[in-house]
Design a binder for these strands. Structure first.
Length: 260
DNA sequence: ATGCCTTTCCCAGAAAGA
């Protein structure tokens, strides 16, 4: 079984690249982030011929997460209990959904960006991560193979950014964010580090300034696996080819192969 | 150099991304 996660930065703008990638990579289950469409506008018909059913939690212009599955769906869980919302609890955003697809349970996540450490959005990011931890604890500790996959907007270590000095005072690398990631892992998950391609471990490169070609990226798209899933992993890598060429997302997919 | 690109709203330029 092959599972994957990809922040597509608009599923509508990325549709030709998404379909091409699904045909080539042929994953069984895919977690998508930043679909940027409402539920009625998700292009389900474009992926159905490839064998995929779709579960989507969208809100329109921003955010939006989806699951594509060739292994069916059960126990679909939309959104986050206790979601702090932004700017307040009345306005929860479309940032996570989970489902069981055949033998594995997956949860697609799009963690809030945080903007800057002194921005209210940063405090929201930390609160949202705490709520996420509550939501995944049971799956993390369970005997069903489970993967929490998506755009975490956190670089786990300084080796996961192209230049730690360039991120001084920025979000994505602060101790509080990394502490939240550690708390998430402490529920029973491990960070599945993909094979290194071309000397760096990155999954995201800013569109500006030719950053991709200069190797100026970050590893912020993660697969966090529980023990039952970890023992089935046969391979994991970052599909850099999807970041090349015409009209790419600024993120590359992370792909994980399971032995059964 | 607080920018550099891309997307959405929808037709002008702001907001957001990270």
């Amino acid at each position: 079984m092959r599972i994957a996660t990809w922040n597509v930065n608009s599923v509508v703008a990325r549709l030709p690249r998404l379909v091409e990638w699904l045909e080539q990579a042929a994953p069984d289950v895919v977690c998508l982030q930043e679909t940027k469409v409402g539920d009625d506008a998700f292009p389900c018909e474009a992926v159905k011929p490839l064998g995929y059913e779709v579960e989507h939690l969208g809100e329109g212009r921003w955010n939006g997460v989806a699951l594509l599955s060739r292994a069916g769906f059960a126990d679909v869980d939309r959104g986050l209990p206790g979601d702090p919302g932004f700017p307040d609890q009345a306005t929860a955003e479309a940032r996570t959904l989970a489902a069981t697809c055949g033998q594995v349970r997956v949860r697609s996540v799009y963690v809030p960006n945080g903007r800057t450490p002194d921005d209210p959005h940063y405090a929201y990011k930390l609160r949202w991560l705490a709520a996420l931890r509550e939501a995944v604890a049971q799956d993390s500790a369970g005997s069903t193979p489970f993967a929490l996959m998506g755009d975490f907007n956190i670089a786990p270590t300084d080796a996961d950014v192209w230049d730690p000095a360039a991120f001084a005072g920025s979000t994505h690398v602060t101790k509080a964010e990394r502490d939240q990631l550690a708390e998430l892992l402490a529920t029973g998950l491990s960070d599945v580090t993909p094979r290194i391609a071309k000397g760096n471990p990155f999954t995201y490169w800013d569109y500006r300034g030719g950053n991709f070609h200069k190797g100026m990226g970050m590893r912020i798209d993660l697969v966090l696996a529980n023990a039952a899933l970890t023992e089935r992993i046969s391979d994991a890598w970052i599909d850099r080819e999807a970041r090349k060429g015409k009209g790419p997302s600024d993120h590359a997919p992370v792909v994980v192969d399971l032995s059964r």
